[in-house]
Design a protein around this nucleic acid. Structure first.
Lengths: 231, 231
DNA sequence: TAGATTGTTAATCGATTAACAATC
DNA sequence: TAGATTGTTAATCGATTAACAATC
């Protein structure tokens, strides 16, 4: 068995498929705990209530080869996915914004086994600077570019208020950050060379609120605001 | 001007479009602050660096009618979007899990102006029960079904460890919860009558980690784990 | 062998993008 | 009027789903 071979079409892998892999991964880990030692895509589809063809396509996309009529060796598939996603090679990250969300993120110990380790935290608030949050001392924001440059950190996490997001992103990029995980509810402008991933909760909330009213028919009578011009 | 008319195809509105509306909304609010009073889709596209046709389609989808050569009255469009998304009709929600993430979510005051108000928090940990978090007293988890039934709450937020997610979801549904916003890294099984929205950070991390390595070429030499069978 | 599963190709579906007519 | 923008239809693109051959 070999590691994933260099795939010339790596950039063509659909985002949606990438985001489903952790679902499979978690289910596989559960199977390991349950003492299983092999697994088929059909097992995965059944267990998770997903479309079998989709699961097949997603797994196939990672390049692993299975055995017809058998499936995959469980531990092989788990390690394959870890390697495919880079979860066995944690990448250092800096976090800006030691508020409640930032502190919560600093407490996510399992980020490390999922490809990311937050190695330093920064804030602009003198009250927060110097405090220790989950074992890391909050540093002054102005130290960030130098820190990033010195440590060759490529990943930045933004957990600031909306207004600070763009300046913080600029500061990160000035130090050499190449990928930004943005939790602030703000649109960040960045060159296409920088990977930008937004985790804006209000985006989700828009979808959820809309569905709740329209799919469940929960909206109040009248179903709308009234304008003066209404008759 | 009238509110959005009943649209027989509401369920066909693409998720992706729904999730872009908050981006426009925020930009429009900024424009209001800047003193503008009208706006075209082209303005939005330019300002946000998005495809103009896509912005047009998204805005049109909400059913608002504009004026050729002019666009939309800024305040009209802002209110239209608020109404379309249900953001002017906050829906009560219960939260389970008063850990660091749950506490952070309880602190999001602007959820209320985005369609959701967390009206109660629950936990199973005796240490947490009775504590006040951002003005709400943490109640014993066992009180949840009755609370939900009594208050006709339809929305549930899960911010528990993974293992608790499914039982908590079941408890919520037993009380009448119809939509679940799940922040726990776990796959939840629910009937299709329940709206389920997962905010699993590890899904995002999978995508981010993969892109960082493969789009930026950051993976270490060898680019893979080595198995004993390797030559 | 029979049959379940992988591997692969084709068909469908839906979202994005492009083109163009209508309008103020 | 001219021209920018809305409104609408068509074309493209990509992801999902279906079909089927290969394999152990």
């Amino acid at each position: 068995m070999k590691g994933p071979s260099p795939n010339p079409r790596l950039h063509e892998i659909p985002e949606a498929s990438l985001r489903r892999l952790p679902i499979y991964y978690r289910f596989l880990q559960q199977m390991v705990l349950n003492g299983a030692f092999q697994v088929s895509c059909a097992d995965l589809a059944r267990g998770l209530g997903l479309d079998p063809t989709q699961v097949r396509k997603d797994i196939e996309m990672t390049g692993i080869v299975g055995k017809p009529r058998v499936g995959y060796l469980l531990t092989d598939l788990v390690r394959w996915l870890e390697n495919f996603l880079g979860w066995n090679r944690p990448k250092g990250a800096v976090l800006v914004g030691a508020g409640s969300l930032g502190s919560a993120l600093l407490g996510y110990e399992r980020f490390r086994s999922h490809g990311m380790e937050i190695v330093a935290a920064f804030d602009i608030d003198p009250e927060k600077i110097g405090q220790r949050v989950h074992g890391r001392e909050v540093q002054p924001l102005m130290f960030l570019p130098d820190f990033v440059r010195r440590t060759h950190t490529l990943l930045g996490v933004i957990a600031t208020p909306a207004a600070a997001a763009q300046p913080v992103a600029d500061l990160m990029m000035s130090g050499g950050i190449r990928a930004i995980w943005n939790f602030a509810p703000a649109h960040i402008q960045a060159p296409p060379t920088v990977i930008l991933q937004n985790e804006d909760l209000y985006h989700s909330l828009a979808s959820l609120s809309f569905k709740l009213e329209n799919r469940l028919g929960v909206a109040p009578a009248g179903n709308g605001i009234r304008y003066a011009e209404d008759n």
